[in-house]
Nucleic acid binder design. Sequence first.
DNA 1: GCCAACGTTGGC
DNA 2: GCCAACGTTGGC
Length: 137
Amino acid sequence: MSHWLFKSEPSAWSFDQQVAAGKAGTPWNGVRNHQAKLNMMAMKLGETGFFYHSNEGKAVVGIVAVIKTFYPDPSDATGKFGMVDLRAVEALPKPVTLEAIKAEKRLAKMVLVVNSRLSVQPVTAAEWRIIRSMGGL
DNA sequence: GCCAACGTTGGC
DNA sequence: GCCAACGTTGGC
């Protein structure tokens, strides 16, 4: 089982909205970056990821699960890009801020730190465990 | 196929 | 609001 990290500006789509969408989930649409696309293509049903609030908050705030694997994004006229469907699993009792992540030496190689612009990122098993525990899970 | 120009993202 | 980093576009 791999783990992932999804970035969203809360003003565009927040974890609260993801929670409100319930078990039916929502498509993670609008990705127009090939590296992010490749990451989504690698996702398997039931895999989990962090939900990260960029710009405002700048913190990992919750956990989501893949409930539908990669399929074409109908809003992409070129037909090159696609999306997966996600549902909220649970919120972190304590959001883990970017500041806290940067301060943790074991997370120095996280994609979030090294390539902050990538919107859909892989997370290693160790990073997953560390951030979950920092978040109070 | 190179690369300059431009647009966007996202931390600060 | 600024600007660095990065991706994309388009002229040559």
